[in-house]
Design a protein around this nucleic acid. Structure first.
Lengths: 326, 326
DNA sequence: TACCGTGGTGAAATTCTTTCAAGGATCGCG
DNA sequence: CGCGATCCTTGAAAGAATTTCACCACGGTA
């Protein structure tokens, strides 16, 4: 049976009032005693009624942990997510992490809100957070990310396949010196796309001609590609790990007086709105954002407790969009 | 003195249990009676304890109502806001409204969460919502928006001054046939910028040469400007009501084989990241996002209850950024 | 030493929720 | 039409948690 405050009080050898005060935010109580009571209550599985209602309220909020809202791909996701959750009456809490910050920095803040689910599109999950979420029965879904070291459901585009498609497109255009503009090495979006790209190239008897480090940002990619094409070895094509980097690459190529799509073919990944803009006309792999968000929401809200090993990983295919840049 | 459930029960002529059940989410109670009790309780100023704790929990969340996350200006705001709120331990709830939808559609959902404050960057506020918020002591701040019909604190860039600056820049470049690319007529960002632009032109003895309807979107602006410059009357400059429209205009101009900044000078408004990109080099009025967000947060969190008439309106100046397009 | 003021504490009062059992309505079935 | 069976509603009463109150111990101060 559900333990009551009285039982906790008895077990701790204090009065009922003391237990009540231990859970009140401004209860006047000896700190040591308070800590002891809280620990005991936790061990006995007692939850204060205030906490219970709090959890009931929070039950319909979903927390999104994202970084890098300046990459237009994430606003697309956020927009879609907000609409879909709104439609089913859920609330959306947003955490934007400054670049390079791990989730751990805000783990406590996030958990304090007791959301019913968490979507992580950026930052590395730590096993500490995973454990805490499991303990509180908070579902976590990785989106646009995979983490091999932790068993968590994840929804992602077929990054490996997309990498292959991109390489295949460039090969089909007869390109011989295909370079690669890298994102951040510790992300699955980077590693998978890179792997697919590399594999396809290898199968065609080629290998990446050059590599530049674009750090998933326009500026870094612009700089890196500028330096690359100012060097001795000239690539005749570039696969950029995402679209903003591809746009930076295109501008760098143009700035040097070369023509994207002719002198240097360029392929991106994501299909952000700007990829279709007249100045770029970027060929890219479109991520099916709506489908991905829907899958994520399903995983999160599914009433049935899907066993983690089964509902593990959903990979949705991307789609090659051919415009002028390759 | 604070009314108790017993008093409400007595006043309503029902038992204490009935009152308790009226507030429970799944209380079995005659709907009519429930409504009567709730109305009476409200009139007497009674709040159920569950509701009280709920309010205490929600006290540290701020709701952002935004539209159009596909205009990169809003992700900038969102990003900044998320960081600033995170830093002070507040939560950020996000509502993204589909274009054209009024707040009323989600008013109930928003109010149900009982945030301590609401920031509205899009959509028209209705007096109904304003009244409801006032009643629940939820602060509302308009950001990047002004509404003359409702007395609410607002933070906005000096849109009028920015419009003047844009016009002044184009005039100083010796332009004679200055066109205007409009946003949406029912927004203060549009009307204020347009007014400033017009006033400045008039003072120089000119008036807008042509007008196109860009609806604050890249696509619409691209189409509208394409049509405009395909017509008989050729503008030699364009002031676009925001940056994405300006980028659409630039691409339209280029597509017709003309050179932005030379054949047609173009000025935007916002200074979104893409404005600095190599393909555009857009001259624009920069909105000081960080300052605006800080002001907004201050208004929202300020402990002292600033009288609404005094703390009314904060207008922060924009800054003219000159690049290649004008 | 006497005299506050402060903060911790349990008993008891208060307040709210939940259970329980008693009607009363509705519905299916003979 | 009659007869249960079932479900919903409801107040009384029991139970749970919070808050008040009085008390006590412990400084600091005159």
């Amino acid at each position: 049976m559900k333990p009551t405050a009285k039982q906790v009080a008895h077990a701790a050898g204090v009065s009922l009032s003391a237990v009540s005060r231990a859970f009140a935010p401004d209860g006047s109580l000896d700190p040591d005693k308070k800590k002891r009571i809280l620990a005991l209550a936790h061990a006995m599985g007692y939850v204060s009624p205030a906490r219970r209602t709090a959890e009931a309220i929070a039950r319909n909020t979903i927390t999104l942990v994202t970084g890098d809202l300046l990459n237009p791909f994430y606003p697309m996701v956020l927009d879609m997510l907000a609409r879909q959750l709104q439609a089913v009456g859920r609330q959306l809490l947003v955490y934007a992490l400054p670049g390079g910050v791990g989730v751990d920095a805000v783990t406590d803040q996030i958990l304090a809100a007791r959301p019913s689910g968490i979507i992580v599109t950026s930052a590395q999950l730590t096993s500490r957070m995973t454990r805490a979420c499991h303990q509180h029965r908070i579902r976590v879904v990785l989106m646009n990310r995979i983490q091999r070291d932790i068993r968590i459901p994840a929804v992602t585009c077929d990054n490996y396949g997309g990498g292959r498609d991109a390489a295949a497109l460039l090969l089909s255009r007869g390109r011989q010196r295909i370079g690669f503009v890298a994102g951040l090495a510790d992300t699955s979006t980077h590693t998978e796309r890179a792997r697919g790209f590399r594999d396809m190239l290898n199968e065609a008897g080629q290998s990446p001609y050059l590599q530049a480090d674009g750090a998933f940002s326009y500026q870094a990619a612009h700089t890196a590609v500028s330096e690359m094409i100012a060097g001795q070895r000239q690539p005749d094509a570039l696969f950029c790990c995402n679209d903003i980097m591809a746009l930076g690459a295109i501008d760098a190529v143009k700035a040097r007086g070369m023509r994207p799509g002719e002198d240097i073919a360029i392929v991106g990944f994501d299909d952000i709105p700007m990829a279709a803009w007249g100045a770029y006309r970027l060929s890219t792999i479109r991520q099916p954002v709506e489908t991905m968000v829907r899958e994520t929401v399903n995983l999160l809200l599914d009433e049935a407790d899907t066993p983690p090993e089964e509902g593990g990983l959903r990979i949705v295919p991307g789609k090659l969009i051919i415009r002028a840049s390759a």
